[in-house]
């Protein structure tokens, strides 16, 4: 009998936990680490339904949920409690990087309108500009964009890749963009540190080919409130 009561309350706790997880992530501004902001209100509504369902289960004689289902549904709650919430970052760039051969059409589909003021360009707009125009035309254009630091073993100490993900619906479809930055203080930064790039566009010659690159400095910043770019 006691065991049944315990299992019933565990069921209620997991249902409540799922709703509370969403509310908590919403309140701490972390929901946008996972989904496009246009779904925020839908999720808050869902969380309220789940919390009401938990309340209803507590007040009525709703039966206990089978244990294996409870165990599985504890997983997302446990993730929320125990695993530090992190946006997609340097850890997944290798798996989610934009495919170089076919990216032109993809960027065209994201319909980015480039303004004249290159200082207002995000990394998405820079990527579009680099892919679509002659690098010589872009030379000496001023850059001021944000992203996370991503290092690869082949880069010199003062050069880093500054990356950012483009998300269409949720993190499952995130695509990583990145641009090479040569910075006097580049060696001070490690993977996943958020930075603001300040400098000018100066294509570099590496192994005989011209590579797009920003030359300037990096300024450490906090993670922006929306870590992804939404096309």
């Amino acid at each position: 009998m006691q065991r049944q009561v315990l299992e019933r309350w565990l069921s209620i706790a997991v249902m409540f936990g799922l709703g509370a997880m969403i509310i908590f992530k919403w309140q701490t501004n972390r929901l946008n680490l996972y989904i496009h902001p246009r779904y925020t209100s839908l999720l808050v509504a869902t969380a309220i339904v789940l919390l009401l369902a938990a309340l209803g289960m507590a007040l009525t004689k709703a039966p206990a949920i089978p244990k294996h289902m409870l165990a599985l549904l504890t997983i997302p709650v446990a993730f929320a409690l125990l695993v530090p919430a992190r946006p997609l970052g340097a850890n997944l760039v290798s798996g989610k990087a934009l495919n170089a051969n076919s990216s032109d059409n993809l960027l065209a589909r994201w319909k980015t309108n480039l303004s004249d003021d290159s200082k207002s360009w995000t990394l998405l707009e820079w990527t579009t500009a680099v892919r679509q125009s002659d690098l010589a035309v872009l030379r000496d254009k001023q850059a001021a964009f944000e992203g996370f630091v991503y290092r690869t073993p082949d880069l010199p100490a003062d050069e880093v890749l500054v990356g950012r993900y483009v998300v269409t619906c949720c993190t499952a479809d995130g695509t990583a963009l990145s641009l090479r930055v040569k910075a006097s203080n580049g060696a001070d930064f490690t993977n996943d540190q958020w930075v603001r790039v300040e400098g000018t566009f100066v294509p570099a010659e590496i192994n005989g080919s011209i590579v797009p690159q920003i030359s300037g400095t990096l300024v450490a910043i906090d993670m922006p409130s929306s870590p992804y770019l939404y096309p």
Binding site: I22, L33, Y34, I35, L43, V83, P84, L88, N91, T171
Partner: peptide, 17 residues
């Protein structure tokens, strides 16, 4: 694994509603 968790939560949370 933290990247895996972020991707998981993305799919799970988005499908929940």
């Amino acid at each position: 694994l933290q990247g895996l968790v972020t991707t998981f939560q993305g799919i799970f949370i988005e499908a929940l509603p």
